[in-house]
């Protein structure tokens, strides 16, 4: 019984550990070496999915902290990634409050909205309050591939959810 409980705890912590690891390690989802324009923001897919499906295993405080770590590692002004992730949480929680049944199509659409709000805030703050410059085409590619890859990760996370975590939907 105790063993099952420990295993459950480990499975439940999986997404959070993955988020922290992605933020703090050199592992990145900037796959320009494979395909010149292929970059995606995996963190926001991860956060959105789990906030939507099982918010209790993705605590806001942890996401905030992961954002701060991401800023330090990437060299962005502190707090900017946290703000961007918090916008994702906000949209995800709002959608969760408003909807009874969700499908991959509805999740995909609402994820698009969340990503738009989050990126607008992220890049407008970066543009106005830092010396960093960036190309809009890169932002476009990044958003496109993040959106494009969402269903793939949605299925993978769903398998993880069904197999290891278990759903609580009625």
């Amino acid at each position: 019984m105790a063993k099952t409980s420990i295993l459950n705890k480990i499975y439940n912590s999986g997404p959070l550990i993955l988020l922290y690891y992605l933020c703090i390690s050199e592992v990145d989802t900037n796959l320009e070496n494979i395909f010149e324009i292929f970059t995606l923001n995996f963190q926001i897919i991860l956060i959105y999915f789990w906030v939507l499906k099982r918010p209790e295993i993705m605590a806001n405080g942890h996401i905030f902290l992961a954002g701060l770590i991401n800023d330090v590692v990437m060299g962005f002004p502190l707090g900017i990634s946290s703000l961007s992730y918090l916008i994702i949480i906000f949209v995800g929680t709002y959608v969760r409050n408003k909807s009874v049944n969700t499908t991959i199509a509805s999740d995909w659409f609402t994820f698009f909205m969340a990503m738009i709000f989050s990126n607008i805030l992220f890049f407008s703050l970066l543009n106005n309050f830092s010396d960093l410059s960036f190309t809009y085409s890169k932002i476009g590619y990044n958003m496109f591939f993040t959106l494009f890859m969402f269903p793939v990760f949605w299925f993978l996370f769903n398998i993880y959810l069904m197999t290891f975590v278990g759903t609580r939907d009625a």
Binding site: P55, A59, N60, G61, F64, G79, L83, L86
Partner: peptide, 14 residues
């Protein structure tokens, strides 16, 4: 599991 509200964390991040 949510010890902090999104609003308070947004203020903190700002």
């Amino acid at each position: 599991a949510q010890k902090f509200s999104v609003l308070s964390l947004i203020f903190l991040a700002l």
